[in-house]
Write a protein that binds this DNA or RNA. Structure first.
Lengths: 155, 155
DNA sequence: TTATCTAGGTTCAAATGTCAAACTTAGCAA
DNA sequence: TTGCTAAGTTTGACATTTGAACCTAGATAA
C-alpha cells in the first residue's frame, strides 16, 4: 500500500474513433480470417480451394470474407482458364491491398519475436536478398528509435 | 473469354500456420476490440471507465479483452491510489505490448491513406517533431521500395 | 447417354460470442 | 444512513461461427 505506482492518469484529449486511421483500420483488420486470407494472398495462394485447405477456414466464412475484401477494394476476383477446364476464378490483392503489406510485416516481426520458436520465412530485398525489417523513418531518411517517438495532433 | 488473365497459379510451398509469426499474430491482433484497447493504451488512456466510454465497448467485453491482453503479457494491471479515494487499477502496456507499436502504426498509415478524410494525429520524433513513417530497411539502414521486396524461406 | 469429378460455392442446426441494460461490490463522503 | 463512483458481473435476446452435408456447372470417362 505504501509504494503503489503513481502513473500519470491525466487523460489525453480523446481522439474520435471516426477521425482516427488507426481505429478505422481496426474495423477492417480486426478479424483473424481477414488477416489470414491476406497472408495467403501475399504468399501467392489465390484459389478458393487452396486458401480453404491452408487455413482450414469454414467455406461459408471464406466466401463471406472474400466478399468483404472485394467490397473494400483490397482484393479482386479474376477469371482464368486452364487447358481442358472451364473458366474459374482467383483472388488477388489490389494496390490498396498490397499497400497493407507493412501491417502484415509488422505482425510477422512481432509474432516471430514473441510467438514462434524459429521462424521459417523472412522479408528480403528481392534483388540483393538482404534481410529487411520495419523501422520508423524521419524526413531525412534516418531511423528513429522507439523510445523517442510520440503521437501528436497535426499542426 | 479470349483475353482472360493468366496469373501464375503455381502455389508456393505451404507455410504452416503454427510456424508463421504472421499467422500467429493474426490470432492475437485479429480482433477489433484488442486493437482498439491497445490504441487507447498508446493514447495513454489507462482506466476501465475511460476506455469504456471512449470506445463504447460493452463492459463485459472490455473485462474479457483486458484479461486476454494480461494473459498474453501485452498489458499489466496496476494498483494506484488518488487522494481521498480507495485503491484502484489502471492498465498499461508492457514492453511486449509497446513492441507492437509498429503494427498499430502501419494500420494508422493505411487508414489515414484509405479510410480517413483528413487525419488529426501523426507519429513524430518526440524531440525534433519530425514526422515519421514506416519503411522496410535493409542491413545497411537504407529503405527498400515496396515492389522490390519478397517473402522467402530462411537460408 | 449416363455417371463421375472438381472448384466454388449454399444451406443447415448447434455452439459460441456479442450486446445493452440492470445489478453488485467496496470504500469514501455527506 | 444514504448516496456516489470505479470496476466489474449477470442476464437474456440476438448475431456469428462452425463442421458437415448438399448443390451446381462444365469437363471428361464408360
Amino acid at each position: 500500500m505504501s509504494n503503489l505506482a503513481k502513473p500519470n492518469l491525466r487523460r489525453r484529449a480523446r481522439v474520435e474513433i471516426n477521425e482516427c486511421g488507426m481505429a478505422q483500420s481496426a474495423f477492417v483488420f480486426g478479424d483473424k480470417w481477414i488477416l489470414l486470407i491476406m497472408r495467403e494472398a501475399f504468399y501467392a495462394v489465390v484459389r478458393f480451394e487452396d486458401i480453404q485447405k491452408d487455413l482450414s477456414i469454414p467455406r461459408a466464412i471464406l466466401t463471406n470474407r472474400l466478399g468483404r475484401l472485394i467490397d473494400l477494394g483490397i482484393m479482386t476476383k479474376q477469371p482464368y482458364q486452364e487447358a481442358g477446364a472451364r473458366v474459374r476464378h482467383s483472388y488477388h490483392l489490389t494496390l490498396k491491398g498490397r499497400k497493407a503489406f507493412k501491417i502484415l510485416a509488422a505482425m510477422m516481426e512481432w509474432g516471430d519475436e514473441y510467438l514462434i520458436q524459429n521462424p521459417k520465412m523472412q522479408i528480403v530485398d528481392g534483388t540483393t536478398k538482404s534481410h529487411l525489417r520495419l523501422g520508423l523513418i524521419n524526413e531525412l531518411g534516418q531511423e528513429v528509435p522507439q523510445k523517442q517517438i510520440a503521437l501528436e495532433p497535426k499542426r
